[in-house]
Nucleic acid binder design. Sequence first.
RNA 1: GCCCUGGUAGCUCAGCUGGAUAGAGCAACCGCCUCCUAAGCGGUAGGUCGCAGGUUCAAAUCCUGCCCAGGGCACCA
Length: 586
Amino acid sequence: MKQLIQDLLRTAVARLAEQGALPAGTQVDIQVDRTRDKAHGDFAANTALMLAKPARRKPREIADELVAALPDSTAVERVEIAGPGFINFFLSADAAFQPVRDALEHGAEYGRGDTAAGQNLLVEFVSANPTGPLHVGHGRGAAFGGALCNLLAAAGHQVQREYYVNDAGRQMDILAASVWLRYLDKLGEAVRFPDNGYRGDYVRAIAEALVTSEGDSLRHPAATVGADLPDDAEQGGDKERHIDALVTRCRELLGEDAYRRVFDRALNTVLDDIRDDLAGFGVHYDSWFSERSLTESGAVDQGLERLEAAGQLYRQDGAIWFRSSDYGDEKDRVVRRDNGAITYFASDIAYHLNKLARGFDQIINIWGADHHGYVPRVKAALSACGADPERLDVRLVQFAILYRGSERMQMSTRSGQFVTLRELRDEVGTDAARFFYVMRKPEQHLDFDLELAKSQSADNPVYYIQYAHARICSVFRQLQEKGLHYDEEQGRQQLMRLDNDHEQSLVTAIGQYPELIANAARAREPHQVAHFLRDLANALHTYYNAHQFLVDDEALRNARLCLITAARQVLRNGLDVLGVSAPEAM
RNA sequence: GCCCUGGUAGCUCAGCUGGAUAGAGCAACCGCCUCCUAAGCGGUAGGUCGCAGGUUCAAAUCCUGCCCAGGGCACCA
């Protein structure tokens, strides 16, 4: 509809230009907006105001001429000029009800953007190190990423959801060592557990499984394990040096084969748990991309070779550096350490080159806000390799701070003191959790109050929206109980009977949904959907309280049932984008 | 010090590709169930849009500076 009005205006502007009322070659961006106030019609355009300057004429004069030059359209009932020169469009009744017919006709597809114009997108999100269960901090990334993917898909894009598995690197080694130490502990070896080890109960559980499958074949005396290690932090030493030495000791004693078994046992157990957890949270991936595969396939080396070929690598202090400062980064970055190990950054260069090579129009990364300093160097690497850094869009998500009432809850993966995503799901439920996570824009800190999220009260916006859906379903149950019939065809013919304010605003809200999806997807802001649904639910509840739907007048009844059916469809579609269920009864 | 993100009603937040009287929820106060689920609805009250300049017919929105708050500035991942 907005499109139609823009076309009308464009024609009018062209006609005026032809008549010489506007300077030749006048260019104007035709902006048409929905009005906030019904007194201003359904849509408003500021075109005359924008033209006033280049035409050097009064805006209201131009508005008069524009209106006169507008082509006739059955969709527009009348046009008014208001204020400083706004042109207000009032839709004809028939056109105004079009959204209801569209929603009924397209069902789950209502609001879907043009697939032909859609892009091929890769969205990578969560990608937490598989060193432990997901905690509530990851939950926000999962909820946001999941909703964004659904939103982009709803807008007509093709979306691939990917999880980057950090299955190589030092943190995983520390996990493997932690598991092995717990394993020794279970066999009765009095080993000292490092300050920097992973302490969660899940580590003990993996160790337990290791005892079952490996028996005592991986056992070494505690004295051998702990011999001549640098002091740990608790002993007045450096915890990083201590743990690195411990990892090395672990590899030496076990040998590569056995070490790999421990490592993979830890990795697979944790990763299976993460997969299961995310699936339970309604987040599903198309691909799980292994970091290790990048090293093994030689992709990391190839990436470095590309930088080398571009003349952007240099050696200094025994390390290899990438001249990222040439591409806007604050300083140059190490890609290979003096001990020969490649850095995480080097893997990431290879990973992003790989993503682009897969042919996506754009790749989207969802990262925690603490990684923002990382963005310039990755883009720098892409630029240096001749790729367009604009093809990478990094969305930063602030952390969620968990509260129980007014008490702030602390968490840290290493210490094992954290609220897991699974605990959150068990406590507040997936629906409330997902909604709470996405109702704030991602760059806002999120205060997540557990008490509020699980309260089944009016304070809880999730139930408010779900209740609107359930209420509509309930009306149809009542309809059956009363032995009445819903004739949708008749209802569609009688939509003009829906003439009160509550019905008008509900129709308007339904009509806004497709635009909302397009806008929210363009801005990559799922929270817009959450806010829209709140408003839509409000329009429905207000209507529900003001009017009886199951009236004796059959034509009116069917028209009203058509309207609430359309509303229900939009509620469902929107909730679906957010990953929240639409219950039929509450 | 440099970079990023916030600063809008008592609280939590929308609105920010400039547009017509700045919105919602919660909290407060006053009302509404012989009627399709009151997990609901209506009303009242509540704001120098952090501060100061600038651009514009028009600024919460764009630009500059400053003040607060959080985060980031590794041969860690």
